[in-house]
Simulated assay, not measured.
Amino acid sequence: MFETAIKLTELPWATVLTLAAGYCGYFVAHVGARSHHQTADVVFGTLAFGFWGLFAYQYFQAPDRLNLGPVPASVSGFAVSIGLGGAWSGFGRRWFDRFLRRIGVTLRDDCPSAWAALGRDPNVVMTQLTVKLSCGDIYLTDDLSRFKDMPNGPCTFGGAGDMIMFVTHVCYADSEVFEGVDMSAAEKLGYEATYIPKEQIARVEFRQTRRASLLRRANWRRIM
């Protein structure tokens, strides 16, 4: 691998920029959703975002355009690739899926499982989480917003099917009543996070709502 890295540095700068900026854009576009991608997905995804980074680099460096130096032009190329990746992750993928469904091309998306689809839409916020274990116990987080600023908060759905949650109430298998978890030490030691392996999860239930749009949060409608 070290020899491969050395060979890459011997390539023309435009090629190195295309690959580096393209991969950064691809990474940002699919962060948290790359576990099912194949080699071809990585290669062509890198080239797709790298093309726009190279285009920006050539545009900003062209004498008849902005005529920037190689360093500012390279930084601009990186910024364009990463910005497009962020736009694709934030709303581009969602809008494109809706477009394909509306014109009748397909009703499917690229998610390999329903578990992988959780958290894919950044405008959807989970508000409550309930997990039933294989032993019959039920864990509840009554208000996920309480733990949004915690590490791994407010909850984490692992790619292997495992998860991390902050349990506030427990209903044991031999009971029908939820009991509150003692959190008296949270102020001094922090909230206790619970890791649950995939094999112990029998069912997951959650409530979710849609986050206010950026325009609404910025009150742009009032300004306009």
Rank of each mutant, 00 (worst) to 15 (best):
H169I: 03
T39I: 14
P70N: 09
P72Y: 06
G22W: 00
R65V: 11
Y195G: 04
A33M: 13
G69V: 08
S76K: 01
P154G: 03
G159I: 11
G77D: 02
G161Y: 10
G104L: 00
L214E: 14
G158I: 01
L215I: 13
R101C: 04
P70Y: 09
T4L: 13
V125D: 11
M126W: 11
V28M: 11
P122N: 05
G85Y: 02
R65N: 10
G158L: 14
A160S: 15
L214F: 13
T168G: 13
W88R: 06
K7G: 07
T46Y: 00
G119Q: 06
V75P: 02
G83A: 15
W88F: 14
I6N: 07
H37P: 00
Q200L: 11
G25S: 05
F2A: 06
L214Y: 15
H37K: 13
A193V: 02
I103N: 05
W88N: 06
S134G: 10
A5S: 09
Y59P: 00
Y26P: 00
Y26Q: 09
K132H: 04
V125G: 01
V177K: 12
S81G: 08
A14W: 10
F51K: 01
I103D: 01
F178D: 02
E205D: 12
D41Q: 01
L84P: 01
L66H: 13
H169D: 11
P151E: 03
F178L: 05
Q128E: 13
G69E: 06
I6D: 10
C24D: 08
T106D: 12
M1W: 14
V31W: 13
K148M: 12
T15Y: 03
A116C: 02
M183L: 08
D110L: 02
G53T: 05
L68A: 07
G136C: 06
N152M: 14
A79E: 03
L214H: 11
L129K: 04
A218M: 15
N219P: 03
V80H: 02
D149S: 13
R34G: 08
G136N: 08
F2I: 07
A56D: 03
G86Q: 03
G190T: 07
V28E: 08
A185D: 15
R120W: 09
F166M: 04
I82G: 01
E187R: 11
A173F: 07
D137W: 07
S35D: 15
A202N: 07
A173R: 12
Q61F: 05
A48M: 11
K148A: 15
G153V: 07
W52H: 12
R216A: 15
G22T: 07
A73P: 02
A186H: 08
L215V: 12
W88I: 07
V42F: 12
F49Q: 00
V80D: 04
H169L: 03
T130K: 10
R221P: 07
G86E: 00
F91M: 13
P70H: 12
V105W: 13
F44A: 04
W52A: 06
Q200A: 12
A193R: 10
Q61P: 00
F91R: 11
M126C: 08
Y57M: 02
L66K: 06
I196N: 00
V31M: 15
I201N: 06
S35H: 13
Q61V: 01
F60D: 04
T4A: 14
M150N: 14
S175G: 07
